[in-house]
Amino acid sequence: MPRHWGQAALPLSSIFDERAAVMLNDRGTLMNLAFRMLGSTHDAEDVVQDAYARWYALSDDARRAIRSQIAWLVRVTSRICLDQLTSARARRERYVGDWLPEPLPGEARWASTARTQQGDPAERVTLDDSVSMGVLVMLESVTPAERVAFVLHDVFNLPHTEIADIVGRTPEACRQLAASARRHLQRDRRLAVNAQQHRSIVSAFKDACEHGDFDTLISLLDPQVSVRTDGGGKVRAALHPIAGSEKAARYFLGLRRKKFSQEITEESVNGRPGLATHADGEINGVMAIAVRDGRITDIWLIVNPDKLQVWKGSNR
């Protein structure tokens, strides 16, 4: 499963051979990998199913010749994700408005097994830095090869020699790919606040929205704050980013006036303090919020109902 960045890498076969004897289901590992690659549970499901289909398409002799099933599946899953990332760029150019990664609640489980394996920890989304909305959004801006190299090395602990075989580059090239993605992340992480301060600022933002307190909103928002919304053409949303504290404050107060009866609750969103809006007892919007240097710098508002399915059955 994912690790803390900076630990030494081990050979892929060693990592997963040690775990194979105790893991109840390798699928959870593959789903956690694919989600970090693609930012979508639906796409991750498709990729993992494809990887398993390729495994079972092998002859019995071919499967017996493979030393580690999970290592083989990780390689195949990563290669399929690389192909998916390349084609996804063209698909997202046709997307209505901003495409944002899927928000995840703190107790999310992968959809296809939620009804049958509630007690299986391998089926739970592993929430860490690598699945925060800020990281997933940043990974959308790097090349597919950079994303794959970064996720495999910095999150899943694979050495560059193993990654080279997956992405079709030299180990040195893979090292550079991962380092390039890492530099993007490190610029943002330097000014990140601790979880308690993050939660306090999110709570104050919620209160200011509920009470229509424009001045407090301005004080909480960075002057260069960016607000991006994802409705996917299915729900009304801003088609372009909203930049600057005054515009952002007016936008959220305007939303509040239009939907006054909606409840706002504090939630864990991709492992960070965030907010959710409710209508008729159901979540219809999720806000992931980045706080740096004591102010809110980014808000990602997801209202596309296709990306909120996991919230309907989660235990928050």
Results as ranks from 00 to 15, higher is better:
W5L: 09
G6I: 12
A8S: 14
L12K: 00
A21M: 11
V22Q: 10
V22T: 09
N25R: 01
G28I: 11
M31T: 01
N32R: 00
A34I: 10
F35V: 10
R36D: 07
G39F: 05
G39N: 04
G39T: 03
S40W: 07
S40R: 01
T41W: 04
V47C: 08
V48K: 07
D50A: 14
A51R: 07
A53S: 13
D60S: 15
R64L: 13
A65Q: 15
A71P: 02
W72D: 04
L73I: 02
V74W: 01
V74D: 00
V76W: 12
T77V: 15
S78P: 07
Q84V: 15
T86C: 11
R89L: 14
R91P: 03
R92T: 14
E93K: 12
R94A: 13
Y95H: 15
G97M: 05
D98R: 10
W99Q: 07
P101Y: 05
P103N: 10
L104I: 13
P105Y: 06
G106R: 06
Q118K: 15
Q118G: 04
G119V: 14
G119T: 08
A122W: 01
T126S: 12
D129G: 15
D129S: 07
V131D: 02
G134F: 06
G134P: 00
V137G: 05
M138P: 04
E140R: 06
V142P: 00
N157T: 13
L158Y: 00
H160K: 03
H160P: 01
T161M: 00
I163R: 00
I166F: 09
I166M: 12
E172H: 08
A173R: 08
C174N: 00
A179P: 04
S180Q: 06
R187Q: 12
L191V: 02
A195S: 08
S203I: 04
S203M: 08
A204D: 15
G212Y: 08
G212M: 09
D213E: 08
D213A: 02
D215I: 12
T216C: 14
S219L: 05
L221S: 01
D222R: 05
D222A: 10
V225P: 04
V225C: 08
V227F: 03
R228N: 05
T229Y: 01
G232V: 07
V235R: 09
H240F: 14
P241Y: 01
G244Y: 14
S245R: 13
E246R: 15
A248F: 06
R250Q: 03
G254Y: 03
L255I: 02
R256E: 02
R256C: 06
F260S: 10
S261Q: 11
I264F: 11
E267M: 09
A279H: 14
I283T: 05
G285E: 11
V286Q: 04
I289T: 10
R292Q: 08
G294D: 03
I296Y: 02
D298W: 05
L301H: 07
V303W: 01
V303S: 08
V303Q: 03
V303L: 14
V303E: 03
L308M: 15
L308C: 10
W311Y: 14
G313A: 13
S314Y: 05
